[in-house]
Design a protein around this nucleic acid. Sequence first.
DNA 1: CTTCCACATAATGTCCGACATAATCAAGTA
DNA 2: TACTTGATTATGTCGGACATTATGTGGAAG
Lengths: 244, 244
Amino acid sequence: MPERSPVFAFEALSSGCSSRDVLDALTRAIELNQLKVGDRLPPEIEIAQGLGISRAKVREALTSWQNMGIVTRNKKAGTRLAAEVSSNAIQLPVTVKLEAESLLRTHAVRRPLEIETVRLAAKNCDETHRRIIIARCAELLAVYEAGEDWRPADYRFHAALQDACGNPLFGQLIQQIQQGFNEIYEAPFGRAHLGQASIPLHGPMADAVVAGDVEQAAALMEQILALVEGEIREVMQVMGQGDD
Amino acid sequence: MPERSPVFAFEALSSGCSSRDVLDALTRAIELNQLKVGDRLPPEIEIAQGLGISRAKVREALTSWQNMGIVTRNKKAGTRLAAEVSSNAIQLPVTVKLEAESLLRTHAVRRPLEIETVRLAAKNCDETHRRIIIARCAELLAVYEAGEDWRPADYRFHAALQDACGNPLFGQLIQQIQQGFNEIYEAPFGRAHLGQASIPLHGPMADAVVAGDVEQAAALMEQILALVEGEIREVMQVMGQGDD
DNA sequence: CTTCCACATAATGTCCGACATAATCAAGTA
DNA sequence: TACTTGATTATGTCGGACATTATGTGGAAG
């Protein structure tokens, strides 16, 4: 059984075309063939032949997507969609330089975004999202009290909040900033364990969001972030990194 | 007169190395040779020879930097640094998908970042930044009252605020989000003229920031953004885009 | 019949060499 | 001096070859 459709429709492309043109054509082809996240793209050589350009050009374009996290590539396994693409979306590569010395600065950027997220979540979330938030929060607290690794549950809880706020951009930005934070954090300090002290506050915050109490939810999120910030300062002082 | 130093020091690189390794090595070489923004990098072929890898690999790495806006490339003119790089900085490509239908969502993300910026600016700015803010604001108001194009002055004023807040990440993020916003805004609606109604509020806001009145400054920025949001809604309604 | 190992296969990863293209520089002429 | 023309040099593009590595498959051993 072939994993992907044997035929893949392409529109021809002129020889002298920019990488952007290639990505646009690929985007249209993906829409046309209704590829979903996780689906496989044709081999590079077939894409090249289909578009009428060289494999190098296809590779350049795909590398660009790979850097953006839109596709994953593996030998033999091929290239797979890791995120949705759509022709009426603009890929804006916001490259932020996160300096290793400025963990606090990175945290500072996340702060207003997280707070606004819970504000919006408290204001906008519907019954479905309320149930999800409550469930994720209960899960987080259970894992935390059991003494297990609470970070995956924490991640899912915050993802639920970001979902509930009704604007996917918040989740996208926060998660990518967080990812960058972890990268520069783990290098000198090992795996991230920040936020331990703030877990007990997550229950009341979930309650406030579900109850639609915007100010209370925002205030609790502020407290949570303040605790995290305190832990960052501690760790940096212990490691003799000085503060910033 | 040679525009760049005739010798360029490299450290050798193993053959099977990731694109990331190449960029790291290049970063160190750039630091070592003290290249600044606007300076020229050696030709790709020299970089390849210096690092002991193929030109294709160098090109892939440079393309990645080009997509991130770190370098610009021109035939014959060569590759030039467009932004600073440093070995203790992590380039985090935050790719946000800005959909054409969601101008309001984009604005919603900018909102908390702008408000936090003026909060921090009001709290942290020193005498130098105060003078700059006052000057830029006066300039903006003068241009506005003269009936000229106030957008460049507006941009400079906001840049001064972002400078004054003490955390360069805010400015970077906001400006790139704004750039993406303009891209998707200008396509259907022509050049951006948003914020006209909010200009008179900029004077009091600058005063509040300079006076260190955090809450007043934040409140005025909120009003400004609310006016902008109103204009976005108007334009979208007129153009029959519906609201989101 | 099932399990496990070795080989064939197919896709990306890497490299090389060649040519195209364009911008800059230099020389030469009006 | 000013303009034009050609040479130079760098990136842009392409095709092909080989390396590397999951995946799949078939045969031998149990």
